[in-house]
Amino acid sequence: MKNIDKQQKRKKTPLIKINITKKAEKQIIFLLKKSKKNIGVQIKIKKTGCAGFKYVLAMAKKIDSSECVLTEKKIKFFIPVQWTSIINNTTIDFLAIGLNSSFTFQNQNHISTCGCGESFNI
């Protein structure tokens, strides 16, 4: 996997892949440029919702030693090692419908999702 950072290889963390649509890439770059302190995007999984889990994206300002670093389309993603197998092969998209906009996640590792699409089960 050519997109794995040298730092990730040194840590011997799992090799993973994230797919990003052009719309998601554009929105993430827009958000990263809002502050010079932003160095990338943290992707976490939080226990919540009716199906059990949901994705949480946040702008990263520093690297946590317990996260692996993945660069995809010139965007650095910081992912806690315990979630790498679940996040592997996730496709991130960005949808804007009327006044509402959000990132969406498609992942074959999900067993089920809730009716509103906010959470998933693994």
Rank of each mutant, 00 (worst) to 15 (best):
D64G: 00
K76M: 10
I75R: 10
K47F: 09
S65D: 08
F120V: 11
M59D: 07
S66P: 00
A58C: 06
N38L: 10
F103T: 03
Q27P: 08
V69N: 01
S112D: 08
N38T: 05
S112F: 07
D93E: 15
S85K: 12
I75Y: 07
K44A: 13
K62A: 15
P14I: 03
I75C: 11
D5M: 15
I97K: 13
K23I: 01
K44R: 15
I16H: 14
K74I: 01
I97Y: 09
Q8S: 11
I43N: 11
I45M: 13
I111H: 10
Q106C: 12
I45Y: 09
V81D: 00
T104I: 09
K9N: 02
G98K: 03
F30R: 02
G115H: 00
D64W: 05
F53A: 10
K37V: 05
I18D: 10
K9E: 02
D93M: 09
K11G: 02
K22D: 15
Q106E: 14
G115Q: 01
V69W: 06
R10M: 02
G49P: 03
T48H: 14
T90L: 10
T71D: 10
T21F: 06
I4S: 00
T90M: 13
I63M: 01
S119W: 01
N100H: 11
T21I: 09
I45R: 15
G49W: 00
F103A: 04
E25I: 02
W83Q: 04
Q108A: 14
M1C: 09
K22F: 12
K23R: 11
I4T: 08
A24F: 05
G115S: 01
K62V: 12
N38R: 13
T21E: 13
E72L: 01
T71V: 12
G40D: 11
V41D: 06
I75E: 07
I28Q: 05
F105M: 09
A51K: 03
Y55F: 15
I18L: 13
A96C: 04
F78V: 05
Y55N: 11
K9D: 01
Q106P: 04
E67Y: 15
A24N: 04
C68W: 06
K26P: 06
L15Y: 06
N109F: 13
K47D: 05
I20G: 12
C114Q: 10
N109L: 15
M59Y: 08
I122Y: 07
D93G: 15
F53R: 14
S112L: 04
S101N: 08
K37M: 13
T71K: 07
E67F: 15
G98V: 11
W83N: 06
L57D: 06
G49D: 00
S112E: 05
I111C: 04
I63A: 00
Q8L: 06
K62M: 10
I16L: 13
F103R: 02
F78I: 05
K23C: 02
T13W: 08
K76D: 14
P14D: 15
L15W: 02
G117W: 05
I29W: 03
G52H: 05
L99W: 10
K17M: 02
P80L: 02
K22N: 14
I86V: 13
L32D: 08
T84N: 07
I28T: 04
K33C: 01
Q42F: 12
S112G: 03
T84R: 06
C114R: 09
P14A: 10
K44Y: 04
Q42Y: 14
C68V: 11
I87K: 04
I86E: 04
T90E: 09
K44S: 13
K11N: 12
